[in-house]
């Protein structure tokens, strides 16, 4: 037995009455998931986004991040769950949310703001508000899903968020069984994220070159923890999904 293993056993033994298996990670074979409502994405994730963990949806502007997150929230509120949207950039469009099927009465929206005058504004003000709000909501519990929208936060700022913050979020999400979805331009949570989805735009669809009818997006699974052993390697690492404009969807209906 190596000295490290012996040391671990010795520490665990001494702490046994307080923390059973203090240094041994708990074995988890399967992770509960919640469907996003988009068949291609659910197939890619083998069920949906994980419950009680952090999922990151990353990509540039117009890559379908927000549409994907709203589809997920719509599915969750449709199941009578209560969700929250912490909006660092104050960018959520309630009309789009309602058109996606989100029950607005079951959505708590926190709109971060700049408190300083325009000349003295700093990007950290909104980011700090968003992180503190997320922390409070996760600690309060009862929210099935929480979207932390950092879509307008630059990667330079987002990478400065301490890893301890993400670790605390992961612990709180696990304890309260909350799906924390982070919308961002790049992955910030690193090892704390259970799933990272990289989104990118493919092509716009139009009718006769005069009406925008939808968009094709590509979503790629950048990272996924807790993979079960039965994953087929023939599954594609990326999927393509379509989103239609509100007027096109109404026309179809």
């Amino acid at each position: 037995m190596t000295s490290a293993a012996a040391l671990r056993i010795q520490i665990e033994h001494s702490l046994q009455h307080r923390f059973p298996a203090a240094l041994s990670p708990m074995a988890r074979s399967t992770l509960e998931t919640a469907a996003t409502g988009i068949a291609a994405v659910d197939e890619l994730l083998q069920g949906g986004l994980p419950v009680g963990a952090i999922s990151e949806i990353t990509g540039p502007v117009s890559s379908g991040r927000t549409s994907l997150a709203l589809a997920f929230i719509a599915r969750r509120t449709d199941e009578d769950n209560v969700c929250a949207w912490v909006d660092a950039g104050d960018a959520l469009d309630p009309e789009s949310a309602a058109a996606s099927g989100v029950a607005l009465s079951r959505l708590l929206w926190v709109r971060c703001r700049d408190t300083a005058p325009p000349a003295l504004r700093k990007p950290w003000t909104r980011l700090d508000q968003a992180l503190r709000s997320t922390d409070m909501l996760l600690q309060a519990g009862g929210f099935a899903s929480l979207v932390l929208d950092l879509g307008a936060t630059t990667p330079e700022q987002g990478c400065r968020i301490p890893l301890a913050t993400w670790f605390r979020f992961r612990q709180a999400a696990d304890r309260t069984r909350c799906s924390l979805v982070v919308l961002a331009q790049a992955s910030f949570a690193q090892s704390s994220a259970a799933v990272v989805l990289d989104c990118s735009p493919l092509q716009a669809r139009s009718k006769g070159g005069t009406v925008l009818t939808g968009f094709d997006y590509q979503v790629q699974r950048g990272r996924q923890r807790f993979n079960s052993g039965s994953i087929s390697r023939r599954k594609p690492p990326a999927s393509v999904w379509q989103a239609a404009t509100a007027w096109e969807s109404e026309k179809r209906a």
């Binding site: 409502g37 379908g64 549409s67 960018a91 469009d93 996606s100 939808g214 989103a243």
Partner: peptide
């Protein structure tokens, strides 16, 4: 809470969302 529907809802087509600049 209302009585949750027992069957899984059909996957509705996803819609393009807007991100507002305010």
């Amino acid at each position: 809470s209302q009585a949750a529907s027992s069957c899984t809802p059909d996957a509705a087509p996803a819609r393009m969302a807007l991100r507002r600049l305010r």
